[in-house]
Write a protein that binds this DNA or RNA. Sequence first.
DNA 1: CAGTTGCGCTACGCTCCCGTTGCGAAACTC
DNA 2: GAGTTTCGCAACGGGAGCGTAGCGCAACTG
Lengths: 206, 206
Amino acid sequence: MNMRQTAEGTARPAGRPRSEKAEKAIVDATLDLLGEGIGVAELSIEAIAARAGVGKTTIYRRWSNKEDLVVDALATLKPPIPPLSGTSVRDDLVTYLRVLREESSHQRTRCIMNIAMSDSERHPRLAERFREIALEPRRTALRGVLRRGMETGELRADLDEEMAMAILSGAIMWYTKWHRSGVEPPEDVAERIVDEALTGFRASGW
Amino acid sequence: MNMRQTAEGTARPAGRPRSEKAEKAIVDATLDLLGEGIGVAELSIEAIAARAGVGKTTIYRRWSNKEDLVVDALATLKPPIPPLSGTSVRDDLVTYLRVLREESSHQRTRCIMNIAMSDSERHPRLAERFREIALEPRRTALRGVLRRGMETGELRADLDEEMAMAILSGAIMWYTKWHRSGVEPPEDVAERIVDEALTGFRASGW
DNA sequence: CAGTTGCGCTACGCTCCCGTTGCGAAACTC
DNA sequence: GAGTTTCGCAACGGGAGCGTAGCGCAACTG
């Protein structure tokens, strides 16, 4: 037997083991560069290697192409989902949107979002991964709040879940993205969006 | 006098005049390439020249850098804004959102949008121009509908215009962008968004 | 110990694009 | 016709990044 058992019981081949430190450095460097606004297309292996303090070979040995590396890098990201207490639907929604607003004030988050949005056509696997990691958990959380509200009667029983989610997430996103470029949205966007959405635009008589 | 007066009365220098056809071909080629998903960063002058059937020199003679060219190219785009009859706020909003949905089904529109969104950090002039040309006219139209509704009493008088606009535009955008990648949103997204937004999420007793 | 594999590094040939130059023809003015 | 400018085209030297290979050392196995 020319193999050795590791702690997990998997076989380890002879020779120097791959450095986990290098691996982490590569992933970190990738996220760093993406977070600085470098798009996937311009992202070069050489730049990553330089940033990570690593030889190009070390990268090529682990990932056969750039997309794989980026996918793996994105996979290490975990978006913060706040605890949604359930005190009231309004409170939970405000809390939820506040986190989104806070997040969007970080350049790194914005850049990652940009990549997810614009490269979704050319790199479907990337978009898929992003949806899986960042989007779905949030959708689930948000959906939970809405369902709870519909059960307790705080929300209309015939509320269109999907539309409600699109309205809330879309509004905060639109606001942070388009409402005066570079200018942060007002402190109370979250509250205001939630209140308008809960109340509805229509006047009472109609 | 070694100049000749053109119809407009401006002086025309001696020599072969610049070809308007070439100019148009360059701009078209640029928009074509961007519309195929090529980002601004990867967009090469050589590719534009080849696509336009034009020498590189002809491009460099008119634009000193790529950003200028892209800005000018974007400036030729005019987004369709439907006539908003004013019959009812609901109808106008549905019409408005329907156009946005229809537009977002064209790859070209999606790519241009992507560029506007993701390159806003690195090319502020570009984002500025996009806002000016595509965004503001629509915001104005949408704002008009909302104001009219507030005057006629169809909408709440204390409606937060900005929030309402963010909710409507954001919702359709979110929906077309994120709700199942590649899958077109349902036929009646526009109606559903508008109705949920007008009615509000809250149950009547609350 | 010998054997194997990973490490960082340098260097290679290759491709793409840059921005510029020179060419002969075309399209103008005077 | 003489002069001027633009045209498309081909070519240039140069930089950046590709993916690969070879170096000598490091870190493992047996």
